[in-house]
């Protein structure tokens, strides 16, 4: 690990000033410390933000949910308001990482997680995300766990977060503060697919800090849930996952929110699935027909072709679980 200076920010203003000067924010540290030890990350100045007052979790006036960026994963998962209003959020969090890591890691940091691609973590391997222009080792290498959606010739790593899949399905807003003041952006615009600039993972300007993530109000009654498929039953990243929310009234689906994880370079919204569901009556056939559209546009690699069918089946199963009850 390379030497670095360390300061604790005592206010958001102080943090932004330090961030603007090139300081790297550290919150839970569960991604950053690990990658610093591997010398993938080499910040020369760390700015500790974990003591800032950005950890409130609260219902918004119209029935949405606002989660402070520095709230710990464990605390958000256990929050009664979260569990009652958006159980999929709690499910996704509790299916992530381990109890120890969830005690450390924050919500903002969860969304900011860097790829788990083994070549990204190995500084001796070419990787466009770590070193733009050096090449992508995963394209010709072992790519069983890599993405089938949103890939480019420069990078095929998946986004590792479970929570971000739920936030993407529910069309959450990322609240930011920076040297230019406050702004808000949809999570679907905040997380960037690799394209030609795989090293740019978020729409984040110098010194900007996530202050909160906000889920907009969704019509009630709402059925929602998160399903994660992985190589072992616990403490593992997703091969495929899906977040679903359905608002069914008078026997007809009025609102459908669906996104998938483990398959995209960013959490992958499934508008074709959503559109097929809206206006139709729940039925076993409907879940299958909608799920047929889940892998539209997929481009499998040498070792991950199975993800196309696994994604369809994961979506169908979760639609049946969430929507199947009469």
């Amino acid at each position: 690990m390379f030497p670095f200076t360390y300061t604790r920010a005592t206010s958001v203003h102080e943090a932004i000033e330090a961030g603007e000067r090139g300081g790297r924010y550290i919150a839970g540290g569960t991604t950053l410390v690990d990658l610093m030890r591997e010398t993938v990350e080499r910040p020369s100045a760390l700015v500790d933000i974990v003591g800032l007052p950005l950890s409130d979790v609260s219902a918004t006036p119209r029935g949405g949910l606002r989660i402070g960026a520095l709230a710990r994963m464990a605390d958000v998962a256990a929050d009664p308001v979260v569990r009652q209003t958006y159980p999929a959020v709690a499910q996704a969090l509790e299916l992530s990482a381990s109890a120890q890591l969830r005690n450390m890691a924050t919500i903002g940091g969860n969304v900011m997680q860097r790829p788990r691609c083994a070549y990204f973590r190995d500084v001796s391997a070419p990787c466009n995300r770590r070193e733009p222009g050096s090449g992508c080792s995963a394209l010709e290498g072992y790519n069983r766990t890599h993405a089938i959606l949103g890939t480019s010739e420069h990078c095929v790593a998946t986004h590792p977060s479970d929570l971000a899949v739920v936030l993407t399905a529910f069309e959450a807003t990322v609240h930011l503060v920076g040297p230019e003041g406050r702004r808000a952006t949809p999570i679907g615009h905040f997380l960037l697919p690799p394209g030609d600039t795989p090293d740019q993972e978020q729409d984040l300007r110098p010194g900007e800090l996530i202050v909160a993530l906000e889920i907009p109000p969704l019509p009630r009654p709402l059925r929602s849930g998160y399903l994660k498929v992985r190589d072992r039953e616990s403490y593992e990243f997703a091969l495929t996952s899906v977040a679903v929310a359905l608002h069914i009234r008078g026997g007809v689906i009025h609102t459908a929110k669906v996104a998938a994880g483990g398959v995209g370079t960013i959490p992958w919204k499934l508008p074709a699935v959503e559109q097929h569901l809206v206006g139709r009556r729940p039925s076993p056939d409907l879940w299958g027909q909608a799920a047929e559209r889940a892998a539209d546009g997929a481009r499998p690699l040498v070792h991950n072709g199975f993800k196309t069918e696994l994604l369809r089946r994961t979506v169908e199963r979760q639609l049946r679980i969430v929507g199947g009850r009469s």
Partner: peptide, 11 residues
């Protein structure tokens, strides 16, 4: 409970 390996002592 936390992982001591991912905790900087300076913090």
């Amino acid at each position: 409970r936390v992982n001591a390996c991912l905790t900087f002592a300076a913090r």
